[in-house]
Simulated scan of single mutants.
Amino acid sequence: MFPHFDTQRLSARPITLQSDSVDTLAQDTLALLTPAVQDTLPGHWPAVTNVSEAQSWLQARTEESMLLAVRRLSDGQLVGFLILSPTVLVQVGTSWHLGYLLGEAHWRQGLASELVQGLMAWCQQHQQVACLRAGVSKDHPSSARVLQKCGFSEIALPEGPEGVQFYEYHFHTPAGAN
């Protein structure tokens, strides 16, 4: 089940490229993915500089994960994306790798914390996810602060990419853990 939820200022809904207006969504995505925003994204994702590349970016994200459009409740404007990749962690259960991005115009307004807290509330209510995990570039401390503010704990992942710090939030104590 794809999560979908509202917070005080935001709405997060799954994107299906078959039913959403792909051209409009691609144009809105291109506007969000400024160079500063793209600098915060994983290095293996290709640069987006035109509508065609934005369509490809959206297609790739929907193929590899659950992609949710994050819109302002007040006017429906696209402000960012929530990206969730399900995995299973031994002794923990279902885990979602969490990624999020907000357009540059929406930074420093508390929206990222609100978005992550909204996802956490949805997970708590639906009890389908045991753990949320997120990776943050060490060059992007504001994103790490969002996760810490939401109650995530820093973890060591030896197999993780260099320059990325990981955080986890557990909704219950894993079986056998003390």
Rank of each mutant, 00 (worst) to 15 (best):
F2M: 12
R61H: 15
Y100A: 02
Q128L: 14
V79A: 05
G160H: 07
W45L: 15
R61W: 04
G151A: 07
E159S: 15
G160C: 10
F166C: 14
K138Y: 08
E168N: 07
Q165M: 10
L25N: 06
G151F: 03
Y100N: 02
Q77I: 10
L157Q: 15
Y169W: 07
G110S: 08
Q109M: 11
E104Q: 14
I83G: 06
A36V: 13
W107R: 00
I15H: 06
V116Y: 01
S56R: 03
D28M: 04
R71G: 00
N178I: 13
E53D: 11
G176I: 01
V92A: 06
V22R: 05
Q91I: 04
A121D: 12
Y100M: 10
E64Q: 15
Q91G: 09
Q59N: 13
S19R: 08
Y167V: 01
S113D: 07
A69G: 12
I83D: 06
G93W: 01
Q77E: 15
K138N: 15
Q148S: 10
T173V: 14
M120P: 01
L58R: 00
G93Y: 04
R9W: 01
A130F: 01
V22E: 10
A36Q: 13
Y167Q: 03
C131N: 09
Q125G: 08
E104S: 07
H4C: 12
D6L: 08
V129M: 05
H170R: 13
T16G: 14
Q8W: 08
A26K: 01
W45D: 13
V37N: 05
P86G: 12
L32F: 02
A144S: 09
L147K: 00
A121I: 06
R133S: 14
Q165I: 08
C150E: 05
A60M: 12
G163R: 02
Q59A: 15
T173E: 12
